[in-house]
């Protein structure tokens, strides 16, 4: 007799536990307001990334198309993947020869977005953008030159 009582208890307990599970899902079934999905291409206009989001690396330019990069190459040295290449040139300022940036080549295809270049830059000329739609049709498009054409170095105040 005891065994039968145990058996019935087991069955009822099992059914109860199943019903508790069902109660959770039915709750969500009747509350479509809980839907959390972001419908991405539609919400482009409202989609805002966080300030510190690590998107593409870019060089900060001011309105006069000037940047602060001195071409020192610390970012190149700090990059663990070799995705940055700094090519410098010599310019003459006030009859003095000076090292300046010629091309700041950034290969996004090799970048792991660790942030060491941005953090180590002594003149704070690099920054992370908010761009995250980085797919391109051609792999060479991932190699970018960060300093804009004809940009010059900003004179320190």
């Amino acid at each position: 007799m005891n065994a039968i009582v145990e058996y019935i208890k087991e069955v009822l307990g099992g059914v109860k536990s199943l019903l508790t599970g069902l109660s959770v899902t039915v709750k969500y079934f009747f509350s479509p307001g809980e839907i959390v999905t972001q419908e991405y291409p539609e919400n482009r206009a409202t989609l805002k990334m966080f300030d510190r989001f690590r998107g593409n690396v870019y060089m900060i330019h001011n309105e006069q198309n000037q940047h602060t990069c001195t071409g020192c190459g610390i970012c190149e040295m700090n990059c663990p993947n070799g995705s940055i290449e700094v090519i410098s040139k010599t310019i003459v300022v006030d009859d003095k020869k000076k090292k300046a940036l010629d091309k700041h080549i950034y290969r996004m295809g090799m970048c792991t977005f660790c942030g060491l270049c941005v953090k180590s830059c002594p003149s704070k000329s690099l920054a992370f953008g908010q761009e995250f739609e980085n797919s391109v049709y051609n792999r060479s498009d991932l190699t970018r030159i960060l300093n804009k054409p004809n940009s010059t170095i900003a004179i320190k105040q």
Binding site: M49, F50, D51, R52, F53, R54, T112, F113, C114, G115
Partner: peptide, 24 residues
């Protein structure tokens, strides 16, 4: 994570001697 470190999955937030940025 993303707000403070900039990364969602791979944060690279620590660095020898501290953390990369202060908390948001």
């Amino acid at each position: 994570f993303e707000e403070t470190t900039g990364g969602r999955l791979l944060q690279s937030y620590n660095c020898p001697g501290g953390v990369m940025y202060d908390i948001h």
